[in-house]
Write a protein that binds this DNA or RNA. Structure first.
Lengths: 281, 281
DNA sequence: GCAAATTTGTTCGTATGTATT
DNA sequence: CAATACATACGAACAAATTTG
């Protein structure tokens, strides 16, 4: 009796799910039925359900029942740019191209454009003074009609002053902003730095991406800082923050010579794949 | 009264935590005290606590109390290799170098070496037949004495046959396996591909990394496939799977010309940073 | 459209077990 | 050993969402 009852019930159900007795999308027995099956109170059954729900293995719907979670197709985004194909980046044109190359349909809402004062974290990356004016362009992206990511790009106001008024227009920039800035100002992106982190979604993100509001599905955040050439070395001219649901997105980056094919999704291996025994630490 | 009571209590405590009234490490009022403060039953208080705990905002310890979660230092790992400094990769020598450069102390357990039959997911990446012999080298890595990551590299048996017997030794390869294979076989890594994904930890990972066993802290997994030159194009010769706690690790990738400094951690921005209003979808 | 039945969600009360101080 | 504090478990009632008749 070392393990609590709710835990043993949860394990039993987990094995049924993982073993395929309960298939994705299938309804679990109701709480009342499980109560009789395991001879436990409804609250204990519910504790077992919560154990499974916190791991996103089941999904409860009031008035209907509890269902085995459906496996979601994981989508792979290539972060490293490939000059030849123009693929890569998870943003703008590059994202659309990769989604199409994988046989899906990309869509994007018209941007919401705002003039803002730079928060510290953005100012630091753009190397402008905190509180100085920046432009933010916010867009929602979809794959096959389903919400996929939220994306916001920040540009220093300086770029508009120098002639890139299009940044202030609430219209999609068809050729991509990097290309637009090249055409308008002759600005060339000579490099970029991606920072990747994982955190729980905020309310807005959870709402748009259709994630449960209990934070059990994290989001992956890609912060891309683009650099232009300058006498003092690479000079940041844009920051793009992209937010993806972490349970159905993977990211790939290539360095040097790699096969030319689009990378497929990994099957969530652990660090002990193939391990026959158990590790001791 | 739209929202349930446990939710409102959780929000109230959340604001106290985020506002700094309750500081990291500080003990929350006991369940009994909160029961009186909010005029709710103990079960309702506990539901509020679970809401916070599932978001890793608080930590309950039997016999002691419930405490505001401590902020962990986030560590940044550079995934793109920098030939000049040798930095980058989150694995082997490169990881040690970056950890030192950031002013911390890296340590690693002696590897556990095993001869295995390749599972499909590894065989596919190594382009060997499923079930063929491969070598796995498993290591636990530490920063400043604290568990940091689990790492397993897989090599085709072919490399040993060709003379790289050191792969089978349960000893750390001081110069790094890529360098070792270069010295021994003249094999040159011409490129690599990193795949990044996020998932809940398995029991072994949670145990070693000190993560709660309820899966609320995900792990980030980096799968690096290294390629050597061959007449048929890049040919995979190793796969390294690294597992990091996602709540205290960030990853950086550089492309093209970027500033030369080590990238600092991002402060978890959302896609609406600076957003004064709210988005409507 | 409405009412009933079903199912999960919330809240209360209570009792007992386990870990820590 | 005793006190404190969280963990587990039971039972009960009502609310809210959904489906069915």
């Amino acid at each position: 009796m070392a393990e609590p009852m709710y835990w043993r019930i949860a394990q039993d159900l987990r094995h049924e799910i993982e073993g395929g007795t309960l298939r994705p999308g299938q309804q679990l027995p109701t709480e009342l039925e499980l109560r009789e099956k395991y001879g436990a109170s409804r609250n204990t059954i519910r504790d077992a359900m919560k154990w499974l729900a916190s791991r996103a293995m089941v999904d409860s719907r009031p008035g209907q029942g509890t269902f085995v979670a459906e496996h979601r197709d994981t989508f792979v985004t290539t972060l490293s740019a490939d000059i030849q194909t123009g693929r890569g980046g998870g943003e703008g044109l590059a994202a659309d191209a990769e989604i199409s190359a994988r046989g899906h349909r990309a869509a994007v809402d018209p941007p919401r454009v705002e003039l803002q004062r730079a928060a510290d974290r953005i100012a630091e990356r753009l190397r402008v003074a905190a509180g100085s004016l920046i432009i933010s362009r916010h867009q929602a992206r979809y794959i096959d009609g389903a919400p996929w990511s939220l994306q916001t790009s920040f540009y220093p106001m300086d770029l508009v002053t120098r002639g890139a008024q299009g940044l202030l227009l609430a219209e999609d920039i068809a050729q991509g902003t990097v290309t637009y800035l090249h055409e308008t100002l002759g600005l060339i992106q000579v490099g970029y730095r991606d920072t990747i982190l994982v955190r729980p979604p905020d309310q807005n993100e959870a709402g748009f991406l259709g994630l449960p509001d209990d934070g059990r599905i994290p989001v992956a955040v890609i912060i891309r800082t683009g650099y232009a050439d300058s006498p003092d070395g690479p000079d940041p001219f844009r920051v793009t923050v992209s937010v993806f649901p972490a349970d159905r997105n993977q990211f790939v980056m290539n360095s040097g010579a790699v096969p030319g094919d689009l990378a497929g999704p990994a099957k969530r291996p652990n660090a002990m794949t193939n391990c026959p025994g158990r590790m001791r630490h």
